[in-house]
Amino acid sequence: MLGETRRYHHGDLRTALVEAGLRLARSGGADALGLRGVTRSVGVTPNAAYRHFADRQALVLAVAVEAQGLLARAMLDRIGVIEPDAEPGEQALERLRAVGLGYIHFALSEPGWFELAILTKDEPGEEAASVRIADAVPPPYQLLLDVLNGLVEAGVLSPERRAHAEWACWSAVHGFADLVTRGPLHGQDRDVIDKLAAHVVDTIIAGIRAGAD
């Protein structure tokens, strides 16, 4: 889907524009998503895009939804390699670890897509718009909710401590991702970053374990 840029001839122009937007955003983030540049990359005029998107922001949000899906896929890929025969409580904790490390790894590996999925920018003067799929919960956030609910089902996290736990978890991993993608840890040796990322996620898990004792 995201290989070499293809000229658009016939078919689904909306999909072609979104795919072109993903290619451009991969290296340039949201700033790379100008209507002129996106339409040029598929060989149509900017006016053609208005048949599918009301304005640039609508295109940015459509591409951001796809970036969210890619982020969720990266998290699911880590979940997919968890040992299936582990004790249910350990499996549940490993899924939380996979979600956290998958989030951070995606931010490091695909900063352009990560910025788009999580920190979508708006044009100056526009009202801020959150990235949503209709009225649905974004897939990466839904994964975190599901994993935390799984901890309750496995008896690792009490229902009382489950309340709002997603915000503590997300704040920790997103804060660290922000530090390494554009903060004071940006450019640090990758081995060091990986160790610090594991420490951040394991600290969250240690807190959950302590509450289960």
Rank of each mutant, 00 (worst) to 15 (best):
E4K: 10
E4Y: 15
G11K: 02
L13F: 04
A16P: 04
L17V: 06
V18Q: 12
E19V: 09
R23E: 11
R26H: 08
G34A: 08
G37R: 15
V38L: 11
V42M: 02
G43A: 05
A54P: 11
V60M: 01
V60Y: 02
A67W: 13
L70K: 13
R73A: 15
A74Q: 14
R78C: 02
I82Y: 06
I82D: 08
P84N: 09
D85K: 04
P88L: 05
L93D: 05
R97Y: 12
V99G: 04
Y103S: 04
F106A: 08
A107K: 06
W113E: 11
F114Q: 02
E115M: 08
L116R: 07
L116M: 09
A117L: 03
A117V: 03
T120P: 05
E123R: 10
E127N: 10
A128C: 02
A129T: 13
V131R: 00
I133P: 10
A136Q: 11
V137M: 14
L151N: 01
R161F: 14
H164N: 13
E166M: 12
V173R: 07
H174A: 14
F176E: 05
T181C: 13
R182E: 04
G187C: 04
D191V: 09
V192L: 15
I193G: 02
K195A: 15
A198G: 06
H199V: 12
V200H: 09
V200C: 03
V201G: 09
I204H: 13
G207R: 04
G207I: 01
D213C: 01
